[in-house]
Design a protein around this nucleic acid. Structure first.
Length: 597
DNA sequence: CGACCCTGCGCG
DNA sequence: AAAGCGCGCAGGGTCG
């Protein structure tokens, strides 16, 4: 029988459990109540005791508070321990520090401190202290052999104070519920990122290798050009009558192309395609294959595929808008070309889901634009816009929408914008206002409260110069151009950022629902690795802005599809309440990612 | 040699 | 320099 933490007389016990580094490899855990006040003696644990402790306390569903999920969670996963909820102090600090909604808080007005720093590189050393090394109070690691409370490093009090400042900042905000949701979603994202990295995306190296061999010729050692590339290079040199042409040198290539009579200003594929010259076809082929070889070739495979899984390093909050980034491996640029190597295990499926026209739907809801939301009632919002008679074709609808969200001024997108503005004044009005705010140098804030950064000193200086009495026409042009640039950024920020929030909520809901399939992982008998942690039940394995992949036993694929769809609806409700906006998905259960295109 | 910028292209 | 947002990465080239 399992022991459960029920019937504890202390009502607040275990609401928050703050985790910090102590002397040596020890871990200090302090229980805090809803105000961030300690409610019991700090516990000191050895690194070896820590996972078991977490597993035991997890039964009460606390929220684990730590400086950095990517520091603490991988070691728990390695010990087959998962947690339901956490509060990532570093990620949450960045949000609260920059949000307009908490601009008057102590946290936002404090001088630059250790939490302002860039995300520490964790790499494969989960115990490495990075953030706390910056603490002026002293290094954690040189607290050696102390006794009693001396063993508690400065880390725990610092984190405790930070946590209280964060709670206070949220409580003082005009609409604390949104910020609370944002911080919870951001932190859930951090858990998901660590879990996805640990689980990995199923990857068949044999299929990948076959695909490379088919395209490039037999595998060659690093530094040697594959045969197909060598052949193409020879052909191109012959056509251009330049036997010494260095194809990988843009300068060399551009010079030679121009000498051969091609009026190109760059060597970009889209520009080459406009010309009919015998070199175009082999050159485009060369570019395509050399890209494949350098970005996702054998070297990439050796570096990133371990035990049949691709383990990218996700960086939640890595983009200013709140989108994730990745470090190494280029996980967010996986070309469609190689997705055939992403294959479910035997007896398993990949459930691939992506949100259809997410950003315009987010815009419609942000602006409470019921006309646009109505156009999105079906599976295809662009088709809905056409059906409403706003524009002629789907391509026009898409171009005009993207133009509105990105700030197009010319081209078809820019040209059709006025039509869109007449049909959807609220939605288009919101994008225009967001642009004007940026042009003024103001901040703009997403649905849940993430604010855009303020423009830098260069930008302000350029604007100031334009207002000076001695300003030249060039000064004014530059200032206006910079202002418009920043306006396009803020215009897009509010949509992209709010869409990122929707996606976080979507994933968090998916994870929560999938949790029920697990054999109660936190309390299960510890097994040896993270791999086995995800060996029996459906789990998230990939995320790409508006798309997720769940790896699941085949028998559960149908249920997983339902969960993903329901979670999308729930995410919409969390962000926009009862506003009638749909978030339809395309969901398919496939063996290979390539089938899901 | 590393640090940095430029070009080009992959993804949303 | 694709007309308009956000990224990461590779390879060439230049500079110190």
């Amino acid at each position: 029988m399992r022991r459960r933490n029920v019937g504890c007389p202390c009502k607040n016990e275990g609401v928050y459990l703050l985790v910090g580094l102590a002397a040596g490899d020890n871990v200090a855990v302090t229980a805090l109540d809803g105000t961030g006040t300690p409610v019991e003696q700090t516990r000191l644990l050895t690194g070896a005791e820590f996972p078991g402790f977490v597993a035991a306390r997890e039964s009460a569903s606390p929220r684990w508070v730590w400086d950095d999920t990517s520091r603490w969670y991988p070691r728990l996963l390695a010990a087959s321990v998962r947690v339901r909820r956490c509060h990532d102090l570093r990620l949450c600090h960045v949000i609260l520090r920059n949000s307009e909604l908490t601009a008057h808080s102590r946290l936002a007005r404090a001088p630059v401190g250790p939490w302002e720093g860039p995300a520490p590189v964790q790499a494969d050393l989960p115990t490495r202290a990075a953030l706390f090394d910056l603490e002026p109070e002293g290094s954690v690691r040189d607290v050696g052999g102390g006794s009693g409370s001396d063993e508690l490093s400065a880390a725990t009090p610092v984190a405790e104070r930070e946590f209280r400042d964060q709670l206070e900042a949220v409580a003082s905000a005009a609409d604390p519920a949104r910020l609370r949701l944002l911080l919870a979603a951001e932190s859930a994202g951090a858990l998901i990122a660590a879990e996805m990295q640990a689980a990995g995306l199923p990857w068949r190296s044999d299929l990948h290798d076959a695909l490379l061999t088919e395209a490039l010729g037999p595998r060659v050692p690093a530094g040697v050009k594959p045969r197909r590339l060598e052949d193409l290079a020879t052909r191109i040199r012959t056509v251009l009558a330049d036997p010494t042409l260095k194809l990988d040198s843009q300068q060399d290539l551009l010079r030679t192309l121009q000498r051969s009579g091609l009026e190109v200003r760059s060597t970009r594929a889209w520009e080459l395609r406009k010309h009919s010259h015998p070199v175009v076809e082999p050159l485009l082929e060369y570019k395509k294959l050399s890209r494949l070889a350098s970005a996702n070739g054998w070297a990439w495979m050796d570096a990133w595929i371990v035990d049949g899984r691709f383990h990218p390093d996700y960086l939640p909050g890595g983009v200013v808008t709140g989108r994730w980034a990745t470090r190494g491996g280029g996980a967010m640029q996986l070309p469609k070309q190689v997705r055939g190597a992403v294959v479910a295990d035997r007896g398993w499926k990949l459930v691939v889901a992506d949100a259809a026209q997410l950003e315009p739907r987010i815009l419609a809801a942000l602006a409470q634009d019921t006309a646009m939301a109505t156009a999105g009632r079906g599976a295809d919002l662009y088709a809905g816009i056409v059906a409403s008679g706003v524009v002629e074709t789907r391509e026009q609808a898409k171009g005009a929408m993207l133009g509105a969200m990105y700030g197009a001024t010319t081209g078809e997108g820019g040209r059709l914008m006025p039509k869109l503005a007449r049909a959807y004044p609220r939605a288009i009005g919101l994008t225009e206002e967001a642009a004007r705010a940026g042009e003024r140098g103001d901040r703009i804030t997403t649905r849940l409260g993430r604010s855009s950064p303020l423009p830098g000193a260069d930008w302000r200086a350029a604007q100031a110069r334009a207002y000076d009495s001695s300003a030249s026409a060039a000064d004014e042009r530059l200032a206006r151009s910079r202002a418009r640039d920043w306006g396009r950024f803020t215009r897009n920020f509010v949509v992209q950022g709010s869409a990122a929030e929707w996606a976080l909520c979507w994933m968090a809901e998916i994870r929560k629902a999938l949790w029920a399939f697990g054999d109660d992982p936190p309390e299960a008998a510890p097994s040896s690795s993270a791999q086995s942690l995800f060996a029996h039940s459906p789990h998230l394995v990939f995320f790409l802005h508006d798309e997720v992949i769940v790896h699941t036993p085949t028998v559960l694929a149908g249920e997983v599809e339902d969960i993903i769809i329901r979670s999308a609806t729930e995410a919409g409700r969390l962000l926009f309440g009862d506003f009638p906006v749909d978030f339809p998905l395309t969901v398919t259960s496939v063996d290979s990612y390539a089938e899901a295109l």
